[in-house]
Computed example of a mutant assay.
Amino acid sequence: MISRRDYLRLCAATGAGAILAPALSWAAEKPGALITRPIPSSGERLPVVGLGSSATFSSAAGGEGADALKQVFQAFVEHGGTVFDTAPGYGASEAVAGKIVNELGIRDKLFWATKLNVAGFGGGKADVEQAKAQIAASFQAIGKPAIDLMQIHNLGDVATQLPLLKSLREEKRIRYLGVTTTFPRQYEQLEQVMRDERLDFIGVDYAIDNRVMEERILPLAADRGIAVLAYAPFGRTRLWGLVKGHEVPDWAAELGMRSWGQFFLKFVVSHPAITCATPATSRPKNAVDNMGAAFGELPDRAMRDRMARHIQSLA
């Protein structure tokens, strides 16, 4: 049986054909069942690792990277992925991704999560007609009669924009609604919205070296029955710089963590309040590697502490 490490090297050398070839799939190594978590408001289960579309994905979508993104989606779905997180604010990502998944015929295999914000991130006021136009553009991009999840991006004028999402949920045009932020200055506001509104989801930043969410927001999400999408699980690019030149510790193999990406992701999704982490990538081999964190065992509290201490020792 080909090893996963050799498989990833082969993927890099030979492209999408190798990535998707069932005979070479690391899933054939039977690493265990796909790990899923329930959405508290419905019980619907989602894989704990998804795909984001900011950062490198967005750059590829806005340039000449559409072919690579098509391979990313193929690899992602082939290895059990369903949750795709995007936003109108991510440049061409939403429109390009919508075109790709329709061309590939995988649209209905995905849990499509997008966002709404025409108010900006600085406390501006949303224009209702502009918001409706952005919503219409999101529906046009994916071409589905109902979008799985739509969230207010970075808490943009929640008072104006959240009622629009409530109406869409009542009309069954969206299945779930929520709010997001990755700005520390908005965390207090996020807590208030979580207490005041009936949210299905929140989306927040959370990583092995960014654990402030554990103090108040993740416990509140668990208490309120709100699903959590974890953004920036690699600390954007911060964690990659930290581990550059270092090998994944041998003891990580106890839980099947064979790469730093899996190390970081398994830590994030092992928190019981996290429903799904959505790392962005424009490389098919990274999509395959990331999905590896959704199989096998998750760290317990002792292992989580050991992992965190190890990362702190590299700082």
Results as ranks from 00 to 15, higher is better:
residue 180 T to D: 08
residue 88 P to Y: 00
residue 196 D to H: 13
residue 112 W to G: 04
residue 182 T to G: 08
residue 194 M to L: 13
residue 213 M to C: 02
residue 103 E to S: 06
residue 108 D to G: 07
residue 137 A to P: 04
residue 124 G to D: 02
residue 202 I to C: 05
residue 146 A to M: 13
residue 138 S to H: 08
residue 105 G to E: 07
residue 182 T to S: 12
residue 161 Q to H: 09
residue 169 R to D: 01
residue 169 R to Y: 00
residue 168 L to I: 04
residue 104 L to W: 12
residue 124 G to P: 04
residue 190 L to M: 15
residue 91 G to E: 03
residue 130 Q to Y: 03
residue 99 K to R: 15
residue 92 A to N: 13
residue 218 L to Y: 07
residue 121 F to S: 03
residue 161 Q to E: 15
residue 110 L to Q: 11
residue 114 T to P: 14
residue 193 V to F: 12
residue 116 L to Y: 12
residue 146 A to D: 03
residue 189 Q to C: 00
residue 180 T to I: 04
residue 149 L to G: 07
residue 87 A to S: 15
residue 188 E to Y: 10
residue 219 P to M: 04
residue 201 F to D: 00
residue 116 L to S: 03
residue 200 D to F: 08
residue 100 I to C: 08
residue 191 E to N: 06
residue 191 E to D: 06
residue 206 Y to K: 00
residue 125 K to D: 09
residue 159 A to S: 10
residue 192 Q to L: 06
residue 123 G to T: 08
residue 213 M to W: 01
residue 151 Q to G: 02
residue 187 Y to D: 06
residue 203 G to N: 12
residue 121 F to H: 13
residue 112 W to A: 11
residue 144 K to C: 02
residue 166 K to T: 11
residue 207 A to M: 02
residue 150 M to P: 08
residue 130 Q to G: 10
residue 99 K to N: 07
residue 192 Q to M: 06
residue 146 A to F: 01
residue 99 K to I: 05
residue 129 E to G: 01
residue 211 R to E: 10
residue 164 L to N: 08
residue 125 K to C: 04
residue 197 E to I: 01
residue 95 A to C: 02
residue 210 N to M: 05
residue 180 T to P: 10
residue 133 A to W: 10
residue 142 I to D: 00
residue 219 P to D: 05
residue 106 I to G: 07
residue 103 E to I: 05
residue 122 G to D: 13
residue 186 Q to N: 11
residue 162 L to K: 04
residue 173 R to D: 05
residue 106 I to C: 02
residue 179 V to T: 09
residue 117 N to E: 06
residue 89 G to M: 08
residue 177 L to Q: 07
residue 216 R to V: 14
residue 104 L to M: 11
residue 192 Q to D: 15
residue 143 G to R: 12
residue 133 A to S: 15
residue 204 V to G: 01
residue 171 E to A: 15
residue 166 K to G: 02
residue 119 A to K: 06
residue 121 F to D: 02
residue 148 D to C: 05
residue 174 I to P: 09
residue 167 S to A: 15
residue 144 K to S: 12
residue 208 I to S: 02
residue 198 R to I: 05
residue 188 E to Q: 15
residue 200 D to E: 10
residue 89 G to Q: 07
residue 184 P to V: 11
residue 170 E to D: 15
residue 130 Q to D: 14
residue 174 I to W: 13
residue 146 A to P: 00
residue 164 L to I: 13
residue 91 G to T: 09
residue 152 I to S: 07
residue 100 I to G: 10
residue 193 V to L: 08
residue 157 D to C: 01
residue 182 T to R: 05
residue 89 G to S: 11
residue 210 N to A: 07
residue 116 L to T: 03
residue 129 E to L: 09
residue 207 A to G: 08
residue 203 G to Q: 15
residue 148 D to Q: 10
residue 90 Y to K: 01
residue 106 I to F: 06
residue 112 W to E: 01
residue 129 E to K: 14
residue 94 E to F: 03
residue 109 K to G: 00
residue 113 A to Y: 04
residue 155 L to H: 11
residue 94 E to K: 01
residue 201 F to G: 00
residue 156 G to T: 11
residue 205 D to H: 09
residue 219 P to E: 04
residue 207 A to P: 12
residue 160 T to Q: 06
residue 126 A to R: 01
residue 96 V to P: 10
residue 200 D to K: 10
residue 130 Q to E: 11
residue 159 A to Y: 00
residue 100 I to D: 10
residue 161 Q to G: 08
residue 187 Y to T: 03
residue 142 I to H: 04
residue 104 L to I: 10
